[in-house]
């Protein structure tokens, strides 16, 4: 019973940010739902192996990211949208309106970022993850995370202010 209650509490705390992180990477509602569910399924199966309970958040995001990479590798279906096609779909965001964004605009810009920048940027904004946590989740060194973030954030901002920029 306590186990169920722990699980429910965990779901209540993390299902939304996990979904949002998944959606940031997949830009697909069904895929993001699957990834989120799969993450909790893995937790139900293997979560007891985590000794340091303070690492639950990192564990969940790490697991979701690994699942995403695994599925991506299997499907080998990275979307290759030509710039011409993409720019037609993208909204024009003037520099003055960067502060008034909507999800669709940001996701469209995020999609145009190099894949290596997408996950760190999403984690940066979504959960206020520390750089160390982001490094653990993505399994890359701290310095690499900071470097990717600086480049990713700058690029995202450029994309939002000038949506006809080429895909990075």
């Amino acid at each position: 019973m306590a186990e169920n209650s722990d699980f429910e509490s965990l779901v209540a705390n993390y299902y939304a940010p996990l979904y949002q992180f998944a959606f940031s990477m997949t830009r697909d509602e069904a895929d993001a739902c699957d990834l989120t569910q799969q993450t909790f399924c893995i937790w139900a199966n293997k979560g007891h192996q985590l000794r340091d309970r303070s690492k639950v958040k990192t564990w969940l995001f790490t697991t979701l990211h690994r699942e995403f990479l695994s599925i991506r590798r299997k499907q080998s279906r990275a979307s290759h949208i030509e710039l011409g096609q993409a720019s037609a779909e993208l909204p024009v965001v003037m520099p003055s309106s960067v502060n008034q964004l909507d999800v669709r605009e940001v996701m469209a810009a995020l999609e145009r970022l190099d894949e290596t920048f997408q996950a760190p940027v999403a984690l940066f904004y979504l959960q206020d993850c520390s750089y160390q946590e982001i490094a653990e989740i993505l399994d890359v060194p701290l310095g690499t995370v900071k470097s990717r973030l600086v480049r990713g954030l700058n690029r995202l901002h450029e994309m939002l202010t000038n949506p006809i920029l080429p895909k990075s």
């Binding site: 699980f7 779901v11 979904y19 949002q20 569910q37 999800v103 940001v106 904004y125 979504l126």
Partner: peptide, 24 residues
């Protein structure tokens, strides 16, 4: 702050939480 708010506004499908619960 605007970007953070936007990321956090990514709509979560209604019923996802319940779906995870029923899967569990």
């Amino acid at each position: 702050l605007a970007l953070r708010d936007t990321f956090r506004q990514i709509p979560v499908p209604p019923g996802l939480k319940e779906q995870i619960g029923s899967e569990q």
